[in-house]
């Protein structure tokens, strides 16, 4: 009797803990939504993209709530970083696996793992003290979209490289044997056989890296200048959605505070979509 009872207790405890762990994300969504309600109701979704500017501290009537420049900033810095980091990350993974001599490949992998472990605030201070002065010499003011793209590229590169590397490792040896027996060169093997076989893994890697880039706060906050404007060149200073939250949460009140939660909800939605896409990509892993 008591034994059965202890097994029941165990099972239900574990179920309870798992349930709590699973509900955190719902709780996050719910709190973000509740906090967003005032802004959504009083300001309305339309004004977030049609108002003339971002001056939310004036309240619902006098203030203006245009997110578009910051959404553009996030979009620009994310797409720039993903465009750069994808080829570099895939190249790094290929280097580890097909081009580097054995020991060097392992060492390089460790190095990329190290790069993945550096905190974003450290990337930020490096960008602030080293990268920005360099850009300033070339095109003032230095704090710019370009600085954000470069720092973010280095930050998400390890995500692309490490996930791609593990999907390259999962390519069956028999494919490589088959390719060698056909007299395919190294590049022909990689391009014709290995990359198609690892395709879904690479897509997942890029999607997760994109999520990381969208959500990154500290590094872009520290190097992009944080001026609310739609960038017209890579040398313009811009403000990302994440940086905007970090800058204004400290003093935001009422509708302003609620508007910041709306932008948080938008970030969350983007990430949910990306995660859903990556799950879909990895489940549909066979070539068709």
């Amino acid at each position: 009797m008591s034994r059965q009872w202890s097994e029941h207790l165990l099972l239900w405890t574990l179920r309870g803990l798992a349930m709590v762990a699973g509900c955190i994300i719902l709780l996050i969504g719910a709190f973000l939504a509740v906090e967003s309600v005032p802004a959504l109701r009083e300001v309305g979704l339309g004004r977030f993209f049609s108002d003339t500017s971002w001056h939310p501290s004036g309240g619902v009537e006098a203030g203006s709530f245009n997110f578009a420049p910051m959404a553009a900033g996030t979009l620009a810095v994310t797409s720039g970083a993903v465009l750069l980091a994808t080829p570099l990350g895939i190249g790094s993974a290929l280097f580890c696996h097909f081009y580097a001599p054995r020991g060097l490949g392992v060492a390089f992998r460790r190095l990329v793992e190290l790069l993945a472990g550096i905190p974003s605030v450290v990337y930020g201070i490096w960008g602030l003290v080293v990268l920005i002065p360099l850009i300033r010499q070339w095109q003032p003011p230095g704090q710019s979209l370009l600085a954000g793209i470069l720092v973010l590229t280095i930050m998400i590169l390890p995500t692309v490289a490490l996930l791609t590397e593990s999907s390259l490792r999962a390519v069956p040896r028999s494919y490589l044997q088959g390719a060698a027996a056909l007299g395919l060169s190294r590049w022909a093997t990689v391009w014709g056989v290995v990359l198609p076989a690892a395709r879904s893994g690479i897509v997942t890697a890029v999607l997760l890296a994109t999520g990381r880039a969208i959500g990154e706060t500290m590094a872009v906050l520290m190097v992009m200048g944080n001026i609310v404007q739609v960038p017209t060149s890579v040398f313009d200073p811009v403000r990302a959605l994440t940086a905007n939250i970090a800058l204004e949460m400290g003093y935001a009140m009422d509708a302003h505070r609620s508007a910041l939660f709306v932008s948080g909800l938008m970030l969350l939605a983007m990430v949910v979509v990306l995660v859903a896409m990556s799950v879909w990509a990895s489940e549909r892993s066979r070539y068709a």
């Binding site: 179920r15 762990a21 699973g22 973000l32 999520g211 706060t217 939250i245 990430v271 949910v272």
Partner: peptide, 26 residues
Amino acid sequence: LAHFVRRSLDVLAGVPSIVFGLFGNA
């Protein structure tokens, strides 16, 4: 339940840290 927990954790792993900040604050 397992399916739900797994999917939730996948999403939770991707949530930007500033969003955690907003949630924690609220």
